[in-house]
Design a protein around this nucleic acid. Sequence first.
RNA 1: GCCCCCGUAGCUCAAUGGAUAGAGCACCUGACUUCGGAUCAGGUGGUUGGGAGUUCGAAUCUCUCCGGGGGUGCCA
Length: 547
Amino acid sequence: MRVLSASLGQLILEGAQAAQRAGVLSGCTLPEHAHLSHPTRSEWGDYSCALPLQLAKPMQQNPLEIAGQIEKYLPDSVLLGDTSVSAPGFLNIRLNGDWLASQIEVILGLGSAYADLQYGDGKSAQVEFISANPTGPLTVGHGRGGVVGDSVSNLLAAVGYQVTREFYYNNAGQQMRRLGESLRLRYLQALGQSVELAEDHYHGAYLVELGRGLYVEHGESIVDADWEFFKTKAEDAIAGNQRDTMKILGIQMDVFFNEYSLYDDGSVDKVVEVLRDKGFAYERDGALWFAATSLGGRDDRVIVKSGGEPTYRLPDIAYHCNKLQRGFDLVVDVLGADHKDAFPDVIRGVEAMGYDGSGIKMLMNQFVTIKGNRMSKRSGNFVTLDELLEDVGPDVVRFFMLMRAAGSHLDFDLDLAREQSEKNPVYYVQYAHARICRVIEKAQSEGFLGDSGDVDLLCHPAEHLLIRRLLELSDTIDRAVRELEPHHLTAYARDLAGSFHGFYRDCRVVDVDNKALSLARLKLVRAARFGLARTLELLGVDAPKAM
RNA sequence: GCCCCCGUAGCUCAAUGGAUAGAGCACCUGACUUCGGAUCAGGUGGUUGGGAGUUCGAAUCUCUCCGGGGGUGCCA
């Protein structure tokens, strides 16, 4: 399917070109795209375009006159219904009702993939998200990144990309030592020893439980084990817990990329070697520095500490080189706000290594608060994603996380999320789907079978609006992919559900006294089911048949 | 100090340089004895944090100030 607003914009540009050729508009350069919007008043049609206003200056002509000429020279197209011009210079378009009705058959023919696009065909994309250290349960912040990353993955697949969902398993480095030490101390506490955790240890209750568990299992036999033993115990338990949580949230990773492998296969050493050879790395104060400033960065960065241990930046660069070596056309890093500043340095590192970093995009998501409370993992004061999921369920978590632009702070409204009523926007959308299923069942029970309906009978404004909305799923997918902003889907889901509810009120579907119209409307209802189910699928939210 | 993100209705947030800035929640008033009322229709509610600038046109772009968050580690 094609993006409707883009097709209309193309027609308008063709009209402008034709008017230029006819000499009624001056021959200035036209923009590549004509932007369309939905007008606020229904008498202005389905779409309006401000192109004439933009052209007024370069053309040295009155915008209303420009709009009139473009209207006159619009090419013949089945898409176009009434057109009009309004002050101060808008060109308004109403879609052709017959064409709209005919699109129902197109949707039914294509099924739930009807709105998919093809511009990613033959390309591959990798989306890295969550990538939590195995040092504690997933937080609601990880949940946001997870839901955003998973939906972006769905969206990329919907435009044709072969998508790999990847979790960077960050299990080397100093944090893991702290984790091992923390668990060792918790175990010793379980033995009754009076030892205290240091400030930079992990204080969460989950390690207390793990420590007790180790005591129950091993007694005092591991009292002399070192931090690495405890690190492995903690890591295994926590990673398993994280995967369980992701499963509940409906996230299925394709690859768990292990940081250790970058050391094992020499990738990390290779980065050091190449950066040294190219003069992008130098020694100072016993440490190895990456000369980020020579590549436009603000500060040079340590990549190997004076003790010989790499900082996180070094394996990060190696990892991103590895992504490009695997041939991905598009790489998306879904990062929390705390990792945002490190991203440009990684890209500089990748480019210093000789790769083209332009295909690597960052999707930053701001932190999440619940009822206004900040959460911090090291202090142990946080609501886990597990707890949130148990409280309100995965559908509500996913939908709420996707209601906001990723870059906006998200204040999770627990009271609203717990509300199982009309107040909750998730149920508004799911209810529309359940209602659709019920109408279809009702129609079958009343003997409306088969697909003989004639869609030409559908000419009610509420029907037209619903069809238009269904077609706009392509626009929504296109925009969400272009901007890497999956939250457009939740807004669309509410609009589409609203259009269906409006249609349901105005247009009775199952009417034994009007079989022909009933059969036609039934087709529209089935098409609406594809649209709503697909939207919910892209969001990762269940589309229930009853609720 | 410096860098980045955010600031929009009482609350939580939308809005691709375009028309009278939109939804949901809250509050108020209504709706088919028929397909699910978890719905629908209407109302109240705004100096888009303040100020200046660019533009025919600014929530959107620029500058400045204020407020919130993040970063500025040889932590990740």
